[in-house]
Amino acid sequence: MPHVLVLVDHDGDRVNKSTYELLAAARRLGDPAAVVVGTPGTAARLGRSLARHGATSVHAAESTEAAEFLVTPAVDALELAVRETSPAAVLVSATTDGREAAARLAARLDAGLLIDAVDLDSSGVVTQIVFGGSYTVRSQATHGIPVITVRPGAFEPEEHPGEAVERTLTLPGVDPGTSARITARRAAPAGDRPGLTEATVVVSGGRGVGGTDGFKVVEELADALGGAVGASRAAVDAGYYPHQFQVGQTGKSVSAQLYIALGISGAIQHLAGMQTSKTIVAVNKDPEAPILDLADYSVVGDLFEVAPQLTQEVAARRTGS
């Protein structure tokens, strides 16, 4: 079986779920070979969980400065791993960092770059959803080793326990004239909620939520459902909720099992980020709101009446009373 390189997304101690999804996708094409870029010792910490999810080898690209520079260490590591393993494809999560690393790698390899795949078959043909969900496109690379970014949440992680061989990749030193140094980091407040793009349930609030306080109603419903919180751009622009939670064309794209829109009108730019969700529920007091025309279940009503009642019902069911 050919190797398929997978760039591991991690926080130093734990592998992100999107990487397990990549390993599952990679197994359709060959033997997953995980590439870990980090400070010395990272690959040893992560190796076991990678092997449990199907990695047959783990390539450690480690250096003290690997985490201090933006994107380029990952590109260097992948380029080295490609030269050593001649893989059938390279898979990277379609996160911001992942997209950038994959594109730079494809440029260095002069290879076909396939962006934001939601599905993948054994011949290397990927499925993409473009223009905010208006087209489904299947495409393939015609040049070089396909470099594919995979939308988080599109694949299910799979356990596939085995032994992974560990290999070392020697990263070149970073040239501070051609790489940006990361001098400080402030992690997104993690909280107890799942990440927006990974969550199976997303509850979003719009301008109709009316303010920061109003978002408590959105958060309480999200927590009852074990979901993530999202926001429309109007809600973000009005300062009701932080920007990193914006859903839509210029925010995150989510493909949740359940998307609940509270006080969101359903502008085309918002729909672009959520209409590939499986089930859509909308609560809006305006019977003319466009979101009601595409929701699987819609309520014409006041979100401050409907959402708390729903929260209570769900919470009651969860606690089994």
Binding site: A106, D110, A111, G112, L113, L114, V125, I129, G133, S134, Y135, T136, V137, R138, S139, Q140, A141, T142, H143, G144, Q275, I280, P287, L292, D293, L294, A295, D296, Y297, S298, V299, V300, G301
Partner: peptide, 20 residues
Amino acid sequence: RTRVVEAVPRPPRAAGTRIA
């Protein structure tokens, strides 16, 4: 360096149950 094999418009979502 890539080729579109197939492009299909996605059917628009239809409205489901609606209650007041």
